[in-house]
Amino acid sequence: MATTVRKAYVPRRSALWWTKNPRYLLFQFRELSGAFVVAYSFLVLWQLWALRGGSDAYDAFLQVWYSRPMVVLNVIILAFAVLHTVTWFSLTAKVPLFRIRGRPPRSAVVIGANVVIWIVLSFLVVRVIFGGF
């Protein structure tokens, strides 16, 4: 049943609504982080393409890769990737897959377990890439 609405005012939303609240700002950065993660995947594809081109092509790639702008870009991408990961971990805590003594595990436990697994896996990947196994 529809209400009789006479001259109801429809408020206009500011285009800068996301600047009003730091949590909205963080949300926007989190959404933006997806673009940086995609950008990095293109960089990796570029690296593979250079690798396929042989030694000279890869040396040329490395010259660009180690340049200051590229390092800055990588640092920015890393920051957004960390933000993306941490916010994803905080999301996983919202969906309890199991219960301990009838209660869902505490958010800190779920997030902490995710972080530990993340660090261990990252460590293993670094060891595989840089040797040691």
Binding site: V5, A8, Y9, P11, R13
Partner: peptide, 17 residues
């Protein structure tokens, strides 16, 4: 102010339909 994301009916009263 009236809560956001709802149509204003009068002063602080919004349309909850």
């Amino acid at each position: 102010e009236p809560v956001e994301n709802f149509r204003f009916l009068k002063d602080l009263v919004v349309d909850i339909e």
